[in-house]
Simulated assay, not measured.
Amino acid sequence: MKPIPHISEAESVVMEALWSHSPRSAEEVAIAIGDERAWQESTIKTLLNRLLRKNAVKVLKDGRRYLYSAAITREQWLHSESKGFLDRLFDGRVAPLVAHFSRHRKLSKADLEELKRLIGELDDGK
């Protein structure tokens, strides 16, 4: 599997627009992002070009315009980002992450129930 490139926060906004619908022109991406960010189309084009250089996006010429689509899935990106986060901050372990959140941010009853359900599924899988 090819390595997943690092995608900045701004680039991830563009990727979300492409993951929700592709292919899109730069203008269509700008419209899709709309009120979320007040970016000019030139900013969108700059971000698309960065993503192209990183091989996160692919492009197809359609007459006088370019149509962009994601070259990686959201799931691939999410896996890569979360693995990197765990590796950097928690030595690759999930338990210290959950402990950190339980100490510094109150987990809701729904969060606790979901964690119990997930642990139960993991136990059943052994």
Rank of each mutant, 00 (worst) to 15 (best):
A99K: 11
F85N: 10
A110Y: 07
L18F: 00
W39Q: 13
A56T: 05
T73A: 08
S20N: 08
D87A: 10
K61A: 14
S108R: 13
D91I: 01
D123L: 11
T43N: 13
D123S: 07
K116Y: 06
A110W: 07
E81A: 14
M15D: 04
A30S: 12
A110L: 14
E11A: 08
E81H: 08
I7L: 06
S108I: 05
G63I: 04
R65T: 13
Q76V: 05
E11W: 01
K45S: 12
G92Q: 06
L51K: 00
P96V: 07
R53D: 05
L47I: 01
R103D: 13
E28K: 04
R103M: 13
Y68E: 02
A32H: 03
A110H: 12
L89E: 05
P3I: 04
V29C: 01
A30H: 00
A26R: 00
L78E: 11
S8V: 04
R24L: 12
K45H: 07
P96M: 07
S25L: 02
D35I: 05
A70I: 00
V98F: 10
R117S: 14
V13M: 04
L118I: 15
A38F: 09
H6L: 12
H100C: 13
F85V: 09
I119S: 14
E121G: 09
V94I: 15
A26Q: 01
R88M: 06
T43C: 12
L115P: 06
I119K: 13
E114C: 10
A17D: 01
I119F: 12
V98S: 08
K109L: 14
K126C: 08
V57Q: 02
S20C: 05
L52D: 00
R50D: 05
L86H: 10
K61M: 08
E11M: 04
S80T: 02
R24P: 01
S108K: 11
L122H: 08
A71E: 09
K54L: 10
I31F: 01
L115D: 11
K61E: 12
D124N: 15
E81C: 07
E121S: 09
H79S: 11
T46K: 10
R105Q: 15
E121I: 08
E27H: 03
K116F: 06
L89V: 03
S69T: 05
T73Q: 07
M15L: 15
K61I: 07
A70W: 00
E41A: 12
R105F: 13
K61R: 15
A26Y: 00
